[in-house]
């Protein structure tokens, strides 16, 4: 008995370094984006609860604190979850008008798994962060699954900082109501409910794109995004769903 334990322990010592290295390498969706590059594994910080009582809206925050060269800036950021039926969770397109990379959203996790964040700069450098999340469905907790909710966008919401000052970075929050039907669910009769998602949120200033979020099946219902700006006038927020419907604020 002891021997077996010792043996597996030694074995795990042997394979551990390999495993750490191979983790994201074995995740096709991520590998596809990284290709043969070597991502920098510090500087990008991902935070999620270690244990999520409810996988349907897990709060996620990603902050970039890495070092950038002159004229270098983060332009793309992806969130991926390796065990969701579709690994794409949400991704962002970021312009130079974003003063600080600190993004918050709410995501769906079908089961316990590793969540990855990958950031890319305009010079092609990559930063990678990852965190494991355990998803439990807590006793005394139950989620009311509504299969009949209307699959249209409503209630676009934007909260600007309370006393915005031009030149001072402050967080603003956005949310729109929509069930974000994944296309993986069945209704009471056992038929697949067709996919119906909000595809994106685009933020423009005087028609110039400054920030956008692309939502996928891993984005929670009622997509929520918070990010930082330092200039708050003339902003337009446009949500687009898969049917091409648009709502603006």
């Amino acid at each position: 008995m002891r021997l077996v334990v010792l043996y597996t322990f030694l074995l795990s010592l042997l394979v551990m370094p390999l495993q750490v290295f191979a983790d994201w390498q074995r995740f096709a969706a991520l590998k596809e984006k990284i290709q043969d590059m070597t991502p920098i594994e510090s500087g990008l910080e991902l935070s999620l609860p270690l244990v999520a009582d409810d996988g349907s809206a897990v709060p996620l925050k990603v902050v970039f604190k890495g070092r950038l060269a002159e004229d270098e800036q983060i332009t793309r950021l992806w969130i991926l979850a390796d065990k969701n039926p579709n690994p794409d969770v949400i991704d962002f397109e970021i312009s130079e008008h974003i003063p600080r990379i600190e993004l918050s959203t709410r995501i769906r996790l079908g089961e316990s798994q590793t969540v990855y964040a990958l950031a890319q700069s305009n010079q092609g450098n990559l930063w990678l962060a990852q965190q494991e999340v355990r998803v439990t469905v807590s006793g005394c907790l139950m989620s009311g699954d509504d299969t009949t909710a209307e699959k249209v966008m409503s209630q676009p919401r934007v909260a600007l900082p309370r006393n915005p000052i031009t030149g001072e970075a402050a967080e603003l929050r956005t949310m729109i109501n929509h069930p974000m039907e994944t296309g993986f669910r069945e209704d009471d009769q056992g038929n697949l409910i067709p996919q119906q998602l909000v595809e994106s949120l685009q933020v423009t200033r005087a028609n110039q794109p400054i920030f956008s979020a692309n939502f996928h099946t891993g984005t929670s219902a009622n997509p929520f995004v918070a990010f930082f700006l330092d200039q708050f006038d003339d902003l337009t927020f446009t949500w687009t769903d898969q049917q091409g419907q648009q709502l603006s604020e």
Binding site: A57, M142, G144, A221
Partner: peptide, 9 residues
């Protein structure tokens, strides 16, 4: 701060 709760129904 949640979208559903214990024994909601």
């Amino acid at each position: 701060g949640k979208d559903n709760f214990s024994k909601q129904g």
